[in-house]
Simulated assay, not measured.
Amino acid sequence: MINFDFHGKTVLVTGASRGIGKAIAFAFASANARVAIHYHQQRDITEQFRDTLAGEGHIVVGADLANPIAIAEMVNKIIAEFGQIDILVNNAGIYQQHPLDQTSYQDWQEIWQQNLNINLLGAVNLTYCVAKYMMQQQSGRIINITSRGAFRGEPTATAYGASKAALNSFTQSLAQHLAQYKIFVTAVAPGFVETDMTRELLSSPAGDGIRQQSPLNRVAKPEEIAQTVLFLAAPGSEFLTGSIVDVNGASYLRS
Rank of each mutant, 00 (worst) to 15 (best):
V61T: 14
G15C: 00
I78Q: 10
Y252E: 03
A66I: 03
K164I: 03
I244A: 04
L120I: 03
I71A: 06
F192Y: 06
H177E: 15
N32H: 15
F28H: 05
G55T: 09
N117K: 08
N125R: 11
V124N: 08
A23L: 07
A27C: 04
T103K: 12
Q212L: 13
Y39H: 09
T156N: 04
Q48V: 15
H7N: 14
N76G: 06
P99A: 11
Q42P: 00
R50P: 01
S255H: 09
A70V: 03
S147A: 11
A150K: 02
G55Q: 13
E154W: 05
Q106A: 08
N168I: 12
S169L: 09
H177D: 15
T186I: 02
F4I: 05
L53G: 04
I145V: 06
V188Q: 02
P215L: 09
Q109A: 12
V188M: 08
P235D: 06
I59E: 06
F4M: 09
H38C: 05
R141F: 02
F6R: 03
P205R: 13
G191N: 08
I24C: 00
T158S: 09
L178R: 02
V61A: 15
D5H: 11
A226I: 01
F26V: 07
G93T: 06
F151N: 04
K132L: 14
A33S: 09
K22A: 00
N115H: 10
L100V: 10
I118A: 01
E154T: 14
Q212M: 15
A250H: 06
K221H: 14
Q114L: 12
I59N: 05
A179W: 10
V245W: 02
P99T: 13
V130T: 10
G140P: 09
D5W: 10
R141Q: 05
M1K: 11
I118Q: 01
N3R: 14
P155N: 03
S139G: 09
K22D: 01
Y105S: 15
T127H: 08
L53Y: 05
E224V: 03
N248V: 02
G93D: 02
Q113V: 03
P222K: 07
G149Q: 10
K22R: 14
N144I: 02
D44M: 06
A166W: 08
I78E: 07
G191A: 12
W112P: 01
G21E: 02
W112D: 02
K182A: 10
P190Y: 07
I20W: 00
L53D: 01
Q113F: 06
D101H: 12
G21S: 11
C129R: 15
A131T: 04
Q106D: 12
Q109D: 13
A36C: 11
S243K: 07
A63G: 04
V229E: 01
Q41A: 11
N32Y: 10
G140V: 08
P215M: 13
D196S: 12
A31T: 01
I118Y: 00
L116R: 11
I94Q: 00
N67S: 15
Q136Y: 14
K182G: 01
F192N: 01
E224R: 07
M197H: 12
M1D: 08
E194F: 08
Q114K: 15
L178W: 03
G149F: 05
Q180N: 10
F192W: 06
I210K: 13
